[in-house]
Design a protein around this nucleic acid. Sequence first.
DNA 1: ACTCATAACTGAGTGCAGTCAGAAAAAATT
DNA 2: AATTTTTTCTGACTGCACTCAGTTATGAGT
Lengths: 200, 200
Amino acid sequence: MPRASQPAGRRERNKQLKLDRITAAARELFAEHGIDEVTTQQIADKADIGTGTLFLYARTKGELLLLVQNSLYAEALERGRVDAENIPDALDAVMAIVRPVVECNRTQVDNGRVYLREMVFGDPAEPHHREALTITGQTEEVVAAVLGRGARVGEADAAAMARIVSAVMFLAMAASVNLAASVDEIMRDIRGQVAVLLAR
Amino acid sequence: MPRASQPAGRRERNKQLKLDRITAAARELFAEHGIDEVTTQQIADKADIGTGTLFLYARTKGELLLLVQNSLYAEALERGRVDAENIPDALDAVMAIVRPVVECNRTQVDNGRVYLREMVFGDPAEPHHREALTITGQTEEVVAAVLGRGARVGEADAAAMARIVSAVMFLAMAASVNLAASVDEIMRDIRGQVAVLLAR
DNA sequence: ACTCATAACTGAGTGCAGTCAGAAAAAATT
DNA sequence: AATTTTTTCTGACTGCACTCAGTTATGAGT
């Protein structure tokens, strides 16, 4: 057993290093040009690895996007969760959770839409996809928690309503009809639907 | 100006004939093997046209699927509309509309999911895509009409609720989580959410 | 130090959707 | 009937995501 200068052996460290380089390269290129204008070759070159190596770390180009963006969505969710805490009105609180996610999604419209596409149609066995699903699940939990405050809504109903909110968000952000819509326009669209859902 | 044995000139007739051959070829191959196992080359060969010609009639492979399947969804919608007419309960009536669509979608799971994917992420400028969106719009109208019966729900709210039903349906059919789910399981999933939506 | 086993890497190669410059067919014009 | 214009067709070609057989790095065993 060799020294443990860091946690593990050289192999582990090299792997982590490569993953970091890949993540950084993909993040920068996707952010600057949008996923459709970037080739996997460019990413491999920028990360200074072979073409095939890239696909050991993310089995498809879509997985690569999930890898890069998951953490951003997790942060957005956390921001929304905190914002919602001090908002008594259920509708306003739900929208406070939704807003950072929509903002995150619309930072780059193409990337945002591909992210959603991968979530729904990608391979759920892949690790980054699973993480994306986890974040969606957490979003629904946070929404359900807000709806359950004060026990005006039962636990099971709150969960079902949270799923509905999730579906409404998804389509509002993904639909090609809303391609050119601003964050505020999308928020209005979602709010209109959630308002009807919560009206009772 | 030449004779008008049928409606128009030779060109028009040839074009229609080719479109028919393409549609038939694509329908058979997609139905038998699933869209992902069929190449555009095979379709072109079966329709007895050149590779490039295919893309004059449908600009992408996805458009080709929409071309083939749109009419099936339109028929499903019509069946559901009729079924719902004599069902007084709103929830049951909505589910009567939903069922044939889900059945249509699940005839071949892969094709069904790609159809949904194209609807949301495809190019809305393409003709077959527009038709698909029209069918979705009609579905929402039919649902809204059922919800508006007896004026228990206002017109604007009915429209918003119909959009929500649409979103819920979409995700229930498309989500990879439900890949292996049967029609009945998907129906239960949708019903649970619509029930909460309509509870008031 | 040396050998072997295993994990990680690599880039030439593959398959397929979609393009485009030129050919062919149909219609319009003379 | 001949010529020009317009529309439609075509398959060789391109670009790109992804694969895989062969190579190299790492670590374990002796």
